[in-house]
């Protein structure tokens, strides 16, 4: 269970999130929607511990453990995952090797034996099978020269390998055409189970046609201005974000 309580955070000393409270139970799907500048990226960056987006007050706990006291890698090993909007390229680092490092970091954290390259081949094959990925790009360096769609698929593969407790999907739909979006969204749904909760951050309702959230939260000017069920997305579709902004004021 992820509990965010009155979280205030920002960038370069300026508060962007002005007190966010949110509880995400095991296996739930939450969607955070909001216009540009609402604080959506700050929210995800603060949660994963990006050093430029520190929390100034409030608390974030995952199964009772205080995430804000942890380094980003510790948070990840505790089960927090973020699928990036723009995954970075890491030249010279083989993607499969990178996945294996990440997998083994988690295994070591759990006190389990690390997987050698041969074992890991089996694991990765299984996950790729699950996601119906062919994956010629897998053999290349991390994200280097990948198409937009390949990058997103690679993020989801990482999620499959790491089996997080909470996965933040940061604008996973950006830069995808409708067919690719469908594939990526369907893959996410294959990975979602009673142990994995999702926080889906998006501008648009279209992603939610495939990933059906239990709860939707509208973020505006650093605050959650409205929470509700799936119907909220449809309301948003007809009124736009402006209606909610005035409500917040």
């Amino acid at each position: 269970m992820l509990v965010i309580d009155n979280l205030v955070a920002g960038f370069e000393g300026m508060d962007i999130l002005k007190g966010i409270s949110l509880t995400v139970n095991k296996g739930e799907i939450h969607s955070i929607m909001g216009p540009n500048g609402a604080g959506k990226s700050t929210f995800s960056k603060t949660l994963v511990g990006h050093p430029e987006y520190p929390a100034s007050s409030g608390s974030v706990t995952l199964d009772g453990k205080n995430l804000l006291e942890m380094e980003p890698d510790q948070r990840a090993r505790e089960g927090l995952f973020m699928a990036y909007q723009n995954p970075v390229e890491i030249p010279g680092v083989n993607n499969v090797e990178f996945l294996r490092m990440a997998y083994n970091a988690k295994r070591a954290h759990l006190g389990l034996e690390e997987a050698d390259p041969m074992d890991f081949q089996d694991i990765i094959q299984e996950k790729m099978g699950l996601l119906s990925m062919s994956g010629v790009f897998m053999e290349r360096d991390v994200n280097e020269g990948y198409s937009g769609g390949e990058k997103k698929k690679n993020e989801i593969l990482q999620m499959a390998v790491l089996e997080p407790k909470v996965a933040i999907l940061d604008e996973i739909d950006s830069g995808l055409d409708i067919d690719a979006l469908k594939v990526v969204a369907e893959n996410i749904m294959k990975l979602k189970n009673e142990n994995t909760a999702l926080i889906v951050i998006t501008h648009y309702q279209r992603l939610l046609d495939y990933i059906k959230p239990d709860h939707i939260h509208i973020l505006s000017q650093g605050r959650i201005v409205k929470s509700g069920g799936p119907e909220l997305a449809l309301e948003l579709e007809s009124t736009g974000y402006n209606g909610f902004n005035t409500e917040a004021a």
């Binding site: 050093p51 980003p72 030249p91």
Partner: peptide
């Protein structure tokens, strides 16, 4: 940050990036 978000320690992340640079 990307490597650390995957659970890789900072030291291992630095050395992974440097080793990649030298590949």
């Amino acid at each position: 940050m990307y490597l650390m978000q995957r659970g890789i320690s900072k030291e291992a992340a630095v050395s992974t990036i440097v080793n990649g640079f030298c590949k």
